[in-house]
C-alpha cells in the first residue's frame, strides 16, 4: 500500500484513510488493530477491491486493482482472495458442504475435483460430521471453520479476515486462530486480519496499528505469545482507544 487515501464524499466529507503505507510479504500473517472508526474495515474493503482508493496505489502480487475492469476484479477476487467475516456470512439455505463448494461452482470446476477438495478440507477443518447440516444447526466455531473452508477451497493467495473471532467464545476463538496459523504455515497463504481482540492479534507475525486512518505503530512477534500479547496491550493503551474496544480477558 503506497500513500493510500480514501475520502468519503457526502454532506460531511470524511477522510477514512490518510496516506497509509505498509507492505505485507507473501506468506505473512498480519493483524491490523485500531480503535473504532480508525478505518480498519475501509482498509479491508480497499484491499478486497470492492472499494477503490481516492488516491495512492494498492498493489497485490504485482497487480493493480485500479487498472482492472469490474469483471476482471470479480474474477480476481474469485481466484486470488478468500474472505472470512465476523458474522460468518454463510448462505443459510445451503448446507455446510454446499457453502464450501460455492466458490468452485461459480468457476464451473468438474464435480470430481470439487468432491476431492471437499473431502480434503473437511478432514483438515474437522467438518466431516456436519457436512449435511445447515448453518443454523451448527455452533459458531463450526460456522467460522466452514467460512474459513470456503475461503480456502479455491486456494487463494490472500485471505482477508474481518474480526473472525468477534462472535465466538474463547474456546472457539482459539480453535479458529490456531487453524489460521496452521493454514498460514502449511500452505504459505498470506493472511491479513482486522481485529479488536489483542489475543487474536497475538497469534500473528506482525501487528499494524492504525488510528484515525493513519499509520500509528507496528510490532513483530517474538518467541513467547504472552509477552507479545503484553506488548500489544501496551501499544493499545498508548493508542488511547476506547476502553470498551479492549478485550476484558487479560491473559489467554
Amino acid at each position: 500500500m503506497d500513500e493510500v487515501t480514501k475520502v468519503y464524499e457526502g454532506k460531511v466529507t470524511h477522510r477514512a484513510i490518510n496516506q497509509l503505507n505498509f507492505e505485507v510479504k507473501k506468506g505473512e500473517f498480519v493483524a491490523v488493530m485500531g480503535p473504532s472508526g480508525s478505518g480498519k474495515t475501509t482498509l479491508l474493503n480497499l484491499i478486497s477491491t470492492i472499494d477503490s482508493a481516492t488516491s495512492g496505489m494498492i498493489t497485490i502480487d504485482g497487480l493493480s486493482p485500479e487498472e482492472m475492469t469490474k469483471n476482471e476484479l470479480a474474477l480476481f477476487r474469485r481466484r486470488q482472495l478468500g474472505f472470512v467475516f465476523q458474522d460468518f456470512n454463510l448462505l443459510q439455505m445451503l448446507t455446510v458442504e454446499e457453502n464450501l463448494v460455492l466458490p468452485l461452482t461459480l468457476d464451473g470446476l468438474p464435480i470430481k475435483e470439487m468432491k476431492r477438495r471437499i473431502v480434503d478440507l473437511a478432514k483438515k477443518l474437522g467438518l466431516e460430521q456436519i457436512l449435511e447440516k445447515r448453518p443454523n444447526e451448527i455452533s459458531g466455531g463450526q460456522a467460522q471453520r466452514t467460512a474459513i473452508g470456503r475461503a480456502l477451497i479455491h486456494q487463494p493467495a490472500i485471505i482477508l479476515a474481518d474480526e473472525p473471532t468477534g462472535n465466538l467464545d474463547s474456546k472457539a476463538s482459539r480453535d479458529v486462530l490456531e487453524l489460521l496459523v496452521k493454514v498460514n504455515q502449511e500452505q504459505k497463504t498470506t493472511i491479513l486480519m482486522v481485529t479488536h481482540d489483542p489475543i487474536a492479534a497475538s497469534y500473528c507475525d506482525r501487528v499494524i496499528f492504525i488510528k484515525d486512518g493513519e499509520f500509528f505503530n507496528e510490532i513483530y512477534s517474538d518467541e513467547r505469545r504472552q509477552t507479545f500479547f503484553q506488548r500489544i496491550l501496551n501499544v493499545l493503551s498508548l493508542l488511547g482507544g476506547n476502553v470498551n474496544d479492549l478485550s476484558t480477558i487479560r491473559l489467554p
Binding site: I50, F76, R77, L102, R150
Partner: peptide, 8 residues
C-alpha cells in the same frame, strides 16, 4: 457476500 467472493 457473493460479490465479495467474486460474483460478476
Amino acid at each position: 457476500v457473493l460479490k465479495r467472493m467474486g460474483l460478476t
